[in-house]
């Protein structure tokens, strides 16, 4: 966690993850370059690389985008999320290779600076069919750069979770920019529908999974808000918990995770202090609430990470009424003790 910053805390899971990324990259490049070399032996080798790396980065971008909703839909996909930042950085590096190669191939060695040429060679900014699509790729690449550069926990901590999260939400803008980059670029040149079909499938998958995951959460929030009972929110009967797990309620502003650990109930914010992961989908491990995303841990009573770690989340006060657990919707200061229920 956050007690000290190393470039990368390696562990076998991360190594396996990165190996898979490399494997995927190599299998794509071999397939693409192999087929291209057979059917178009005359294709300029630089153009071939530009296309191979451009399309590969788009494919990786799809993967980056669907991992989030997949994990919301089923916890079994969580290992894919654990080291997603390496996938993001790989996407940036592949896209950067594509972009820089394009800049050199199409803009360098001419009568103008290549970055100026990028914006001024094609000036049909008001035409859709002739739009300077490379500019869209450029902005996408710049955003990807900032995301990759700030992907480390050091930046997450220093920029603050909210800002960091907002910056990283720009991945959706990148996606839109890249789709337009392709629609107004190579799709205007070629007559084959294959790439359009590919983009449509990808787009449906990304949108479909996000809607599905969003719908699941909205349903949950709605159902839970009906359980209000004079000030305190009704969570449920003490028998309705699975051991070591949480039930989640929404106080209208945020979600609260109420955990059962043996015969003790405690409530903390559902938002992990790391990247905002859903703590309520985590579990109590060795007496500590453990985030499902990257395994940050919090004490049940005061929401503090155990030393040497320093993360804190808010706690909430609980009451027992008959066999029902109720929660105070007003949070305590992050890291201060909340009232627990002990049976």
């Amino acid at each position: 966690m956050s007690h000290q910053y190393k470039a990368i805390h390696w562990n076998p899971q991360k190594k396996a993850y990165d190996l898979l990324i490399v494997l995927l990259i190599i299998s794509y490049l071999l397939a693409f370059v192999g087929v291209s070399a057979i059917i178009h032996p005359n294709l300029d080798p630089v153009n071939l690389l530009i296309r191979a790396f451009g399309s590969l980065s788009l494919l990786l971008l799809h993967l980056v985008l669907i991992i989030g909703p997949l994990c919301r839909l089923s916890a079994r996909f969580l290992p894919m999320l654990y080291n997603r930042r390496h996938l993001g950085v790989s996407t940036f590096l592949i896209a950067a290779f594509h972009g820089i190669l394009s800049l050199i191939q199409f803009h360098a060695y001419g009568d103008s600076n290549m970055l100026i040429s990028l914006f001024t060679a094609n000036t049909q900014y008001t035409s859709l069919a002739q739009f300077p699509f490379q500019v869209l790729g450029f902005f996408a690449l710049i955003i990807l750069f900032f995301m990759a550069a700030t992907s480390h926990d050091f930046w997450l901590k220093n920029l603050g979770q909210n800002f960091w999260k907002r910056l990283h939400m720009l991945i959706y803008l990148v996606y839109i920019l890249v789709i337009m980059h392709v629609m107004l670029g190579v799709i205007q040149l070629e007559s084959s529908p294959l790439l359009v079909i590919f983009l449509c499938i990808g787009f449906s998958l990304v949108i479909g999974l996000h809607l599905l995951a969003g719908w699941k959460e909205v349903k949950l929030d709605r159902q839970l808000q009906e359980l209000k009972d004079d000030g305190y929110l009704l969570v449920g009967s003490i028998n309705s918990w699975e051991e070591g797990k949480a039930r989640i309620v929404n106080n209208g502003k945020q979600r609260i995770a109420i955990f059962k650990n043996g015969n003790e109930f405690s409530a903390i914010s559902n938002r992990c202090a790391h990247q905002g992961g859903p703590l309520g989908e985590g579990q109590v491990i060795d007496g500590l609430i453990t985030c499902p995303w990257h395994g940050y841990q919090y004490r049940t009573d005061d929401g503090c990470s155990p030393p040497p770690f320093t993360e804190k989340v808010s706690t909430f006060n609980l009451q027992l009424l008959g066999d029902k657990i109720l929660v105070d919707p007003i949070p305590n200061q992050p890291g201060t003790k909340g009232e627990q229920v002990k049976l």
Partner: peptide
Amino acid sequence: LIFVFVASGVVIALHHQKVSNS
């Protein structure tokens, strides 16, 4: 994933048709 990556490589390569003989 491996299947999807290989298949996408093939499909996108097939998409490119306009290459000259120069």
